[in-house]
């Protein structure tokens, strides 16, 4: 059974673990699992984060997604494209979270945000200005559709190219380009309306 070396770019790892399955030994499975987590963990995390803009939820769902992958392997399921499988399961779990009682009963606005978004070596005025701008970015992101947020997260959070985003989300390159341009223009307009923020 031949295993290809891991690629650094997210796109190249798509079919790396095509033969990962029940026939492999436990040690091999663990190594493959670790490699998959290293390679696609942040990607899966970011996709869930894009859905809810909440790091705690993203942590939980990301872990749950990888645990399910492991369970599938333990049950002898063969997953031909683990990356696509992980993204699909993460999206489904994120959607299910929206339907859960926990979400319906209301969750608190994450309080860590202000401290996370504050710069360390800045004066109070710069810090306030930065926090305002980033809060505006957050509000703007909340107004977008989850699909648009996914694209922006992959582009600006993980520095993916447009082709890599199209491959990860299984959509056309022109759609990615169009959504990115539209979102950027809207945010630019919002920032212009709100006032000047120094770069």
């Amino acid at each position: 059974m031949k295993q290809q070396p891991l690629g650094n770019s997210p796109g190249r790892g798509t079919h790396t673990f095509a033969m990962a399955g029940p026939r492999r030994s436990e040690a091999d499975q663990r190594a493959t699992f670790d490699a998959l987590y290293q390679q696609h963990g942040r990607e899966v995390w970011s996709i869930v984060f894009a859905r809810w803009l909440n790091a705690d939820i993203a942590n939980d769902i990301c872990q749950e997604t990888f645990l399910r992958l492991w369970q599938q392997w333990q049950q002898g399921e063969r997953i031909r494209n683990p990356r696509a499988w992980l993204i699909r399961v993460a999206r489904n779990l994120a959607e299910d979270y929206g339907k859960s009682a926990f979400q319906r009963n209301g969750t608190q606005e994450p309080e860590y945000l202000a401290s996370t978004l504050a710069g360390r070596n800045e004066g109070p005025t710069e810090q306030l200005q930065r926090q305002e701008a980033l809060a505006l970015v957050r509000r703007f992101l909340e107004e977008l559709t989850p699909a648009d947020r996914e694209i922006l997260t992959l582009r600006y959070g993980l520095d993916y190219t447009i082709e890599q985003i199209a491959e990860a989300l299984d959509i056309h390159v022109s759609a990615v380009h169009m959504r990115l341009t539209r979102a950027r223009q809207r945010l630019a307009a919002r920032l212009r309306q709100t006032g000047e923020f120094s770069v």
């Binding site: 987590y37 963990g41 942040r42 995390w45 970011s46 984060f49 790091a55 942590n59 990301c62 872990q63 990888f66 645990l67 996370t116 978004l117 930065r130 701008a133 980033l134 505006l136 970015v137 957050r138 992101l141 922006l152 997260t153 582009r155 600006y156 959070g157 993980l158 950027r184 223009q185 945010l187 630019a188 920032l191 923020f197 770069v199």
Partner: peptide, 20 residues
Amino acid sequence: AEHWLREFFRRLIPQQLPPV
């Protein structure tokens, strides 16, 4: 706008995830 988007995600997306 691009700058602020990068800044936002840079601060919120972790570089290293907790191990599973």
